[in-house]
Nucleic acid binder design. Structure first.
Lengths: 338, 338
DNA sequence: CTGAAAGCGCTTACAG
DNA sequence: CTGAAAGCGCTTACAG
């Protein structure tokens, strides 16, 4: 590989001049410039970003640690981060903690060693405090994505609370009085926010909390399918809300097993949802998380933080979109308990 | 940030010794070692991977350029690459060409400047020759993933041909004589291989090529939905095969629009498929590409190439799994033209 | 068992 | 308009 000194020799100038030509950092006579450029061409020179970064103590790269790159919503966020980073001329270093606190810590450490200019982090469910401490101690700017929860850091996520409230108010408006919320692992802030939004509307509407079913359950210890089945078996709710794609799949399966028809026997709404909701029968009412935008916003926030270390921490909530479809169409389900 | 010289001063040793302790590269007296480790602890020292890489001319990182990180199959491959890289202690630099040849070229260049130890590349449809030339000229080992096509480089993908042959032989065995293949953009090797596998079985079974429908179409210029509709409208085929998730969605939509029932009116099989195929009605016969394994294998191949620059180029094909479901159940569809 | 010093490939004051 | 030289933070022959 050709180095800058090779180019300099070839062009009959100093490396100083080569550097300035390449970076446009000072005036260089046109003729000299041409010679340098020709030498670059001839030698196939390519700048060494490592050496450059070492000298400038800036790598023009950011790290992204995501808890589950396999899940569709996260895959979309990764995509959003990727695109926004590319648009800013930043290289993306991707790590996946796979929902393991230990791997998360290792990933953060590895990225810090790589001297990333900043970091975007979607924390795992049982994320260790050390991770944030380490990040803070390192002075590397960071942004929390999707999994929020501290208020003295930049963070961006969907407006889970607002979206859930909107959805549930709609259902209550249709006449639903007994609902089943499949909430999942509420240690995860996203899911906790959705559950709390649900309960808030239940209270606000004057419904009896005892009439509602809330299925929670830690990821891994999978009691959720059984709990859904149990809830469906007892005094039947008239509407079900599933709070993530995985939970939606489990819910649909439970409904099929129990031969409960949507929307005739029960209304169904899902969060995040499936890639092609219109191909389902019935078409599924879906609260779509703006995952791509969340990822892009994380990069924007990070850039702003890098530019100004001292500004107030920001929390950005990006609106979700409720797509009303057939699965919550008003049907006989409501009549059953009327 | 503490540097190695800080640690050395704190421990009362040379940076040489600190380096050797940290890397385990030579014997150091236990007592000295302890002092160094304590100094590391005390100073919160963290090795600078940049400086290290510059000196060793190895970054312990690999680059991945993917043509469409948003598509489920690619998202899974990214996941596979990510996991395998992490297991090898390699950091992953991710770039997305978003099916643009220009962005692809830029991404490759940026990763080369970052001095990655190797590169995994899923090329875009109209990928420029310069990209491969540049890669070869750089002497950085690389592996082609999913989008294969040159035989003097390492490459890994699904066994598209074999999977398609198996599927079509099954359909022919059931009695299907007129089939519709929704092949998509056959400039993409993956899709071309699937189409060719289809045609091979048609010939092998002695079927008339004129009785088969093959819908092709460049990505972007989207004539595919109309062509599917047209094929369905004329002398109806008894089986449809869609060669990707996107094509499967378009096909399902066309079938719904035309009120053609699966599997009663027509059999349907899809490649790659949807995240939860069992939630569809009917459950979809799916040829599942081992995307995660393809990604993992790409990293393995790359590591082997890095270890031995001179070995023969390898082409690895990973078996797909045909999941027979209800959408190709033998039904009245076959009788219609009997 | 340990250290002084060169060098990886750049950028950037400093000087002219 | 241009160049000599220091230095970013490491690793690693070389020497003892």
């Amino acid at each position: 590989m050709a180095r800058m000194s090779d180019v300099a020799r070839l062009a009959g100038v100093s490396v100083t001049t080569v550097s300035h030509v390449l970076n446009g950092t000072r005036r260089v006579e046109q003729e000299t410039k041409d010679r340098v450029l020709r030498a670059v061409e001839e030698s196939g020179y390519r700048q060494d970003a490592l050496a450059r970064a070492l000298r400038r103590s800036r790598t023009d790269s950011i790290g992204l640690v995501v808890s589950d790159a396999g899940e569709p919503a996260f895959a979309e966020m990764v995509h959003g981060v990727q695109e926004a980073a590319a648009a800013e001329g930043l290289t993306l270093l991707l790590a996946n903690s796979d929902e393991s606190p230990e791997r998360e810590e290792n990933a953060v450490r590895a990225l810090l060693e790589r001297r990333v200019d900043g970091m975007v982090l979607a924390r795992v469910a049982g994320s260790r405090d050390e991770v944030l401490a380490e990040l803070r101690g390192s002075d590397v700017p960071f942004v929390l994505m999707d999994r929020l929860g501290v208020d003295d850091a930049d963070q961006v996520g969907a407006d889970n609370d607002a979206a859930m409230r909107g959805l549930v108010r709609g259902l209550v408006g249709q006449g639903h009085r007994r609902m089943l919320l499949v909430a999942g692992d509420t240690r995860v802030p996203t899911l906790r926010e959705r559950r709390d939004g649900f309960l808030a509307v239940v209270d606000e509407a004057g419904l009896d909390r005892a009439d509602q079913f809330v299925v929670e359950g830690e990821r891994g210890a999978d009691t959720v399918p059984a709990d859904i089945a149990a809830a469906l078996a007892t005094s039947l709710p008239t509407a079900v809300i599933a709070c993530s794609t995985v939970l939606a799949a489990q819910t649909l399966e439970a409904l099929q097993d129990a031969r409960i028809a949507v929307p005739d026997d029960i209304a169904l709404a899902v969060f995040d949802g499936f890639a092609y909701p219109d191909l389902f029968q019935p078409r599924l009412t879906t609260v779509r998380q703006p995952a791509f935008e969340v990822g892009a916003a994380a990069v924007r926030l990070l850039r702003e933080r890098i530019a100004d270390k001292d500004r107030e921490p920001q929390t950005v909530r990006i609106p979700s979109v409720v797509q009303q479809r057939d699965s919550t169409a008003v049907g006989p389900a409501l009549g059953r308990h009327a």
